[in-house]
Simulated scan of single mutants.
Amino acid sequence: MITVKILLDSVEKVKNFTSSINNEEVDFEIIEGMHIVDAKSIMGIFSIDLSKPLQLNIHSDDRRILDKIKDFIIE
């Protein structure tokens, strides 16, 4: 499993992020506090606080996925 921090602080970023990962065959979870949402679900993402960085869990060891979402990853 790969875990990174991402920032999705605009509607456009959420749309671009979900379209970047929707064709992947692995599960993605966003964790915000005690909430866990499916990262492929636009409605799920909008149900959490997007003003601060979020933890993204990718249920894969294929680091090539990170290239697709590099614009959203923060250090």
Rank of each mutant, 00 (worst) to 15 (best):
30 I>S: 10
8 L>T: 07
16 N>F: 13
43 M>F: 12
35 H>D: 05
61 D>N: 13
26 V>G: 08
8 L>D: 10
39 A>W: 02
21 I>E: 09
56 L>D: 09
37 V>R: 01
24 E>Q: 02
5 K>D: 15
63 R>M: 06
57 N>T: 06
11 V>A: 10
65 I>M: 02
28 F>P: 05
17 F>K: 05
49 D>T: 03
56 L>G: 10
29 E>D: 11
33 G>T: 00
23 N>G: 03
17 F>V: 08
32 E>Y: 08
38 D>W: 12
39 A>R: 14
20 S>K: 02
12 E>R: 08
62 D>F: 00
23 N>Q: 10
32 E>P: 01
42 I>M: 06
5 K>E: 14
37 V>T: 01
57 N>Y: 07
19 S>D: 11
19 S>Q: 04
46 F>T: 02
68 K>N: 15
73 I>S: 09
55 Q>H: 08
38 D>Q: 12
3 T>R: 15
65 I>Y: 02
11 V>K: 15
64 R>T: 15
29 E>V: 00
13 K>S: 11
57 N>R: 15
23 N>M: 08
46 F>C: 07
16 N>G: 11
14 V>Y: 08
27 D>K: 12
15 K>T: 05
4 V>M: 02
28 F>E: 01
17 F>L: 03
75 E>R: 08
53 P>C: 15
56 L>E: 04
61 D>V: 00
39 A>Y: 10
27 D>F: 03
55 Q>I: 07
35 H>W: 01
23 N>Y: 11
6 I>A: 04
2 I>N: 09
40 K>P: 01
1 M>K: 06
47 S>Y: 09
62 D>V: 00
51 S>I: 07
73 I>V: 05
10 S>D: 07
9 D>W: 06
52 K>M: 13
33 G>K: 06
40 K>R: 15
49 D>F: 11
36 I>Y: 00
22 N>P: 00
8 L>Y: 04
37 V>Q: 01
9 D>H: 05
33 G>V: 04
71 D>I: 03
11 V>D: 10
65 I>D: 13
47 S>T: 15
44 G>H: 05
53 P>I: 10
10 S>P: 04
10 S>F: 10
21 I>S: 08
